[in-house]
Computed example of a mutant assay.
Amino acid sequence: MANQLFQKARETVAIAKQASNGNSSTDVNQAIDIAKNALSSAYANSTVAEQEQLRVLQDELDQIQSR
């Protein structure tokens, strides 16, 4: 069974990336906040390998936020 929180974190970061590129009607700041919450929840309930991937997603989110 796949980690649902991990999958949700990946999805929300992708939505934030789309919003930052203007490819979504979603508010960028709201999308970032949702992704941050999803990453936090996923990190606490993931394997070491998943945590490493979540750190990469967090870096992507940080890049979006610094634009």
Rank of each mutant, 00 (worst) to 15 (best):
M1R: 08
A2D: 11
N3R: 04
Q4C: 03
Q4I: 14
Q4L: 08
Q4N: 07
L5C: 05
L5G: 10
L5T: 09
F6R: 11
Q7T: 10
Q7R: 15
K8H: 11
K8A: 06
R10F: 04
R10D: 04
R10M: 10
E11F: 05
E11P: 15
T12E: 05
T12G: 01
V13E: 00
V13A: 01
V13G: 02
V13D: 00
I15F: 00
I15Y: 01
A16Y: 01
K17L: 06
K17W: 00
K17D: 01
Q18E: 04
A19F: 00
S20C: 08
S20N: 03
S20F: 00
G22I: 07
N23D: 06
N23W: 04
T26V: 10
T26C: 02
T26S: 01
D27C: 02
V28M: 01
V28P: 03
V28Q: 00
N29T: 14
N29A: 03
N29V: 05
Q30F: 01
Q30E: 04
A31V: 04
A31S: 05
A31M: 00
I32K: 07
I32E: 00
D33W: 03
I34D: 09
K36Q: 08
A38M: 06
A38C: 05
A38P: 00
L39W: 03
L39Y: 03
S40H: 10
S41D: 07
Y43E: 07
Y43G: 11
Y43I: 15
N45W: 06
N45C: 11
N45K: 11
S46E: 11
S46G: 13
S46H: 07
A49Q: 14
E50P: 12
Q51Y: 03
Q51E: 15
Q51G: 14
Q51S: 08
E52A: 15
Q53S: 15
R55M: 11
R55K: 14
R55P: 06
L57F: 13
Q58P: 02
D59E: 13
E60A: 04
E60G: 07
L61E: 08
L61K: 07
L61C: 05
L61Q: 14
D62T: 14
I64A: 10
I64G: 14
Q65L: 12
